[in-house]
């Protein structure tokens, strides 16, 4: 249980967050405007936004592709990670057999898997979703397994004296107790899923924002590169924000792990 030593009202908190973002954009603008920076090195925020509406590129379909890969890989990672953790807490044998194996597999650099995945599944949304999944599943599995294990032995005794079933223990004690851990894994996984999908697109793809970046790199259209990075970041921020909102709804303040 961590005590929040300093609390702050929500409104000034949000206001400050928005301000710091705006300040960064302003600094960027001023730097480009007065720093004599060549346009192909760093475009101004204005040019960057312009390229979004210039009609030169098809942004929306590519956002959809990358978004699908990220969200899809993430969703599969969440389901698979939580289910595996569940199976492992139910069966010590399965855990002893497969947990070390999965830890070893996790040591494989996912980037190194990229070329293989392409050989197996060709270019496209599916292999990149797989990349996002493979990199996001572990933090969720590990934190969930840890959270499900964190049950006070005395509390289990209390349940046992009243002949509580394994299902009751799971649904009333283990799962709600594990939620803060699951969310801490989900936050890490959100960041990793974005990285996984983009790496997948870099390695081999014919659509998506990562693919676009490689295309415009050739033509030195830095405006578009910046815009692509911003859009990728926005997808990540949206995903992360959704996780935070869900956490707020489901986990009591006292139990949240930051």
């Amino acid at each position: 249980m961590t005590a929040k030593t300093q609390t702050m009202d929500l409104l000034p908190r949000y206001a400050l967050a928005v301000l710091s973002h705006l300040a960064l954009v302003l600094a960027w603008y001023l730097f480009v405007r007065f720093g004599d920076v060549p346009k192909f090195v760093m475009p101004s925020p204005v040019d960057t936004v312009k390229v979004l509406f210039s009609g030169t590129y098809e942004w929306w379909p590519n956002v959809l592709v990358t978004g699908t890969e990220i969200i899809g890989g993430y969703a599969i990672a969440l389901v698979v990670g939580v289910l595996l953790a569940l199976v492992f807490t139910w069966s010590k044998w399965l855990e002893a057999a497969f947990m070390p194996l999965l830890v070893s597999l996790n040591m494989i650099p996912k980037v190194a898997l990229g070329p293989l995945i392409i050989v197996w599944f060709k270019y496209g949304v599916f292999p990149n979703t797989l990349m996002a999944f493979s990199i996001a599943v572990f933090p969720i599995l590990l934190t969930t397994a840890r959270g499900l294990r964190e049950v006070e032995p005395d509390l289990l005794d209390l349940v046992k004296t009243l002949r509580g079933s394994r299902w009751q223990i799971f649904i009333k004690i283990q799962l709600p107790g594990a939620l803060p851990y699951i969310f801490s894994g989900m936050k890490v996984a959100a960041i990793l899923a974005v990285a996984g999908a983009i790496v997948g697109e870099f390695l081999g793809s014919d659509k998506g924002l990562g693919y676009m970046m490689l295309q415009v790199q050739v033509t030195l259209d830095t405006d578009a590169m910046f815009m692509a990075v911003i859009l990728i970041t926005l997808i990540g921020v949206l995903l992360y924000g959704a996780v935070l909102v869900l956490e707020r709804l489901l986990v009591v303040k006292d139990a949240r792990i930051d």
């Binding site: 249980m1 209390l158 349940v159 009243l162 002949r163 939620l179 009591v252 006292d254």
Partner: peptide, 23 residues
């Protein structure tokens, strides 16, 4: 027990109700 061992995601009254739910 020595520690209260209340479920921190449950309100006090819902914590007290745990045995009745199990039974």
């Amino acid at each position: 027990f020595q520690q209260p061992l209340l479920l921190r995601w449950r309100r006090i009254v819902d914590n007290v109700l745990l045995p009745t739910e199990l039974l």
